Simulated assay, not measured.
Amino acid sequence: MLSESRRSLFLLVCAFFALYVIWGSTYLVIRIGVESWPPMLMAGLRFIIAGILMFVWQIARGAPLPTGREWLAGGAVGFLLLSCGNGGVTLAEHWGVASGVAALAIATVPLFTLCFGLFWGHPASRLEWAGIGLGLVGILLLNLGDNMRTSPAGALLILFAAASWAFGSVWSRRLPLPAGPMASAVEMIVGGCILLLGSRLSGEPLSLPASSSGWLVLAYLVLLGSIVAFSAYMYLLKHVRPAAATSYAYVNPVVAVLLGILFAGETIGQEEWLAMLVIVAAVLLVNLPQWGFGKSKVAVAEQA
């Protein structure tokens, strides 16, 4: 039997792997999916199916039904993270933003998270400030590349998605969410319903893909991208500092860019390669306080 400390460490390692690697691959999978699916329809089905599966699983394990207050809180988080956040990324890729570049742009999430955290009285350490600043330099370099200039609307939508995701992440720590994975289930059900409503109101065709690849994409996004990775993210939000939980936004671009080049024929310029190197360096600075280096006095007091 693993000791409690080793079990916690093992869960943290697994959760970070899910965020860094599995979530990084979803950008390419979404890019493939929007070639067969209307974007909001695909995103909505993804989260509704995943949410219902998790909801049934939790009820079967004896979890209590969410209260009305918990449904409202979970719905608010689901709207910000999934309807606006993930839905925005899906739409941006449908509008022509490359999967790797979309992942690079989402690296603004920790910057927004830090700003919203300050609003709620969460000061950052000097190393976190340095990491966020370096990440911002990476974003500036990214915008010098051709990919972001190809779809200005997509670029703006990506930034909106990042801000929505960050705000929802910080706010979720103060809301009366259901316990455990039931919170993810509620968020995905509500977020998915809002995306399907958006699909109908925007006039998307109610068309299903004829190819098997379209259905494989949906299955991958439901099982790994939603149930596994999103649950890992919600777990980290409860157990690590917000800046560390959102540090996946620095690592996902590396995975997404490499997969996009290898399997989708995507290309990025010199500025974007440099931006990726800068962003990868930034994640190390953001994570150092979580690993025990350079913690602020406030952070130490919070963990005492």
Results as ranks from 00 to 15, higher is better:
267 T>V: 15
237 L>C: 03
15 A>R: 02
37 W>T: 12
300 V>S: 15
284 L>F: 14
132 I>T: 14
72 L>C: 03
56 V>M: 09
255 V>P: 08
11 L>W: 10
301 A>N: 13
245 A>F: 02
279 I>E: 07
110 P>T: 03
214 G>Y: 03
174 R>S: 08
173 R>V: 13
177 L>I: 01
127 L>M: 13
34 V>M: 02
177 L>E: 00
138 G>L: 07
227 I>Y: 00
130 A>H: 06
241 R>K: 09
137 V>P: 11
145 G>A: 03
176 P>M: 01
172 S>F: 05
65 L>N: 09
141 L>T: 01
179 A>P: 05
236 L>D: 04
221 L>Q: 10
95 W>G: 07
280 V>W: 15
243 A>R: 05
65 L>M: 13
127 L>Q: 12
72 L>P: 00
144 L>V: 02
45 L>R: 10
54 M>C: 02
20 Y>S: 05
40 M>A: 12
167 F>I: 00
103 A>F: 11
95 W>D: 14
100 G>D: 09
61 R>Y: 05
68 G>K: 10
231 S>L: 08
281 A>C: 15
70 E>A: 05
117 G>D: 09
264 A>D: 13
235 Y>I: 00
198 G>C: 04
78 G>R: 02
277 L>S: 15
135 G>Y: 06
167 F>Q: 05
114 L>D: 01
45 L>C: 10
156 L>W: 13
44 G>Q: 04
31 R>L: 05
85 G>N: 07
148 M>F: 09
158 I>G: 04
180 G>Y: 01
30 I>R: 02
123 P>T: 00
14 C>Y: 12
261 I>G: 09
173 R>K: 14
58 Q>F: 01
243 A>F: 02
95 W>S: 13
177 L>Y: 00
180 G>W: 01
228 V>R: 11
297 K>M: 12
41 L>V: 06
182 M>Y: 00
217 V>L: 09
145 G>M: 06
293 F>M: 12
34 V>K: 02
59 I>W: 11
31 R>H: 13
223 L>P: 12
164 S>G: 02
32 I>D: 11
124 A>D: 05
258 L>V: 11
262 L>Q: 14
298 V>S: 15
52 I>R: 01
15 A>M: 01
135 G>W: 00
30 I>M: 12
40 M>L: 15
54 M>R: 01
135 G>A: 04
200 R>V: 09
148 M>N: 09
77 V>G: 00
237 L>Y: 05
51 G>A: 09
251 V>F: 06
2 L>K: 03
122 H>S: 10
67 T>C: 02
164 S>L: 08
251 V>T: 10
123 P>Y: 07
65 L>Q: 11
225 G>F: 04
235 Y>S: 04
156 L>M: 13
39 P>D: 04
75 G>H: 07
165 W>S: 07
76 A>G: 15
11 L>N: 15
165 W>D: 04
301 A>E: 14
169 S>L: 11
143 N>M: 15
142 L>Q: 08
